[in-house]
């Protein structure tokens, strides 16, 4: 933590996303599922924040809401000086060029009827970036930047391998020269040997284009490699948020510990040192979350107070933030 803190590129405050759920009869009360429940974080320019969590934790929904691909219920998303969530019409269209998305499945996220060059060109045309006459030159550059050959521009998506398709997806995300790229599980659909190519590419591009990444993943090994800081989500809430080294070397929240301890490792030393923390059972019903800590029913360290009141995210001196009653103020973990 430096004293002179540059203004964050992305500042998310109290973001909440809820979905209406049909339940009961015609006159029953409308029920909502809070997929993302009051989360806040910042990402500095040029850095990578990873959001991790298991399926259903709300990490993808949070990403979609930040990119305005699903509607947020409340909260704000500041992108530089703009309140991204309140922008409308032309201003929104302009701002969209600043936030681009790389999707999980390169087999489903490219239009099969467009040639690769048209896929990459689409955001340029629809968001009106740059002079139309220069667009071909931009596309040439992008293909080079992501490691595809110029003659491959004329091919259709099915003529590429999975890794190459994801490169097209990356080129498309870069096309409008965005500041923030949201990577939603960008390598989890790829073969292991190909993952490295995409991860190395993303890191190189981050340096070359001064990009800021919001990196969504459930693969903690990949997150460890890519991120500068990590937010751990459980049932729509951020339970722990810290820089990379603090989180992986000194996790505080019992859920983070359990998550890390569940990852099998090739490192013998880690295997011997890591004590497996079992969290039996399932998360509670998201439609009626408990009034206390949402992790309490699976937490080996849970006590009376954990089922009584919801722990707030507390900022520790170390720069760690954690939402757990059992973590002491000077940052001693219960497990």
């Amino acid at each position: 933590m430096t004293d002179k803190k540059p203004r964050p590129l992305l500042k998310v405050e109290n973001l909440t996303v809820r979905f209406p759920v049909k339940r009961g009869g015609l006159f029953s009360k409308k029920a909502y599922l809070y997929a993302v429940d009051d989360i806040s974080f910042e990402v500095a320019r040029g850095e990578t924040l990873a959001i991790v969590g298991e399926s259903g934790s709300g990490k993808s929904t949070a990403a979609l809401a930040i990119a305005r691909l699903v509607e947020a219920h409340s909260g704000s998303v500041m992108l530089g000086d703009d309140d991204f969530l309140s922008l409308k019409d032309e201003a929104l269209r302009q701002a969209r060029a600043q936030v681009q998305f790389i999707f999980q499945d390169p087999y489903a996220s490219l239009n099969p009827r467009l040639r690769a060059e048209a896929v990459v060109r689409e955001p340029l045309d629809s968001l009106g970036t740059g002079n139309p006459n220069d667009r071909q030159a931009t596309i040439d550059e992008l293909f080079k930047a992501v490691g595809l050959r110029p003659e491959q521009q004329r091919l259709f998506p099915h003529q590429f391998s999975g890794g190459q398709r994801q490169r097209i997806g990356v080129a498309r995300a870069l096309a409008t020269r965005p500041e923030l790229i949201i990577c939603d599980e960008p390598v989890s659909a790829l073969d292991v040997a190909v993952q490295a190519q995409i991860l190395n590419l993303l890191r190189k591009l981050q340096k070359d284009f001064d990009l800021t990444y919001l990196f969504i993943s459930h693969d903690l090994g990949v997150v460890q490699h890519m991120c500068d800081s990590v937010a751990v989500m459980y049932m729509g809430k951020i339970v722990e948020h810290a820089d990379r080294l603090s989180l992986f070397n000194n996790p505080l929240h019992p859920y983070t510990k359990a998550l890390l301890s569940a990852v099998p490792s090739v490192d013998k030393k880690r295997r011997l040192e890591t004590k497996r923390i079992l969290i039996p059972g399932d998360p509670p019903d998201p439609l009626s979350p408990p009034k206390g800590c949402r992790f309490a029913n699976r937490c080996p360290a849970a006590q009376e107070q954990c089922t009584q009141s919801q722990p707030l995210l507390r900022h520790m001196k170390t720069g760690h933030s954690v939402a757990c009653h059992r973590v002491s103020d000077d940052g001693v973990a219960p497990l």
Partner: peptide
């Protein structure tokens, strides 16, 4: 080619080996 969790992480992050 896969980044692994190891016993103690450091600032160091070597490029991943690519199997072209």
């Amino acid at each position: 080619c896969v980044p692994h969790l190891i016993a103690t992480l450091t600032e160091e992050r070597p490029e991943l080996t690519e199997v072209a």
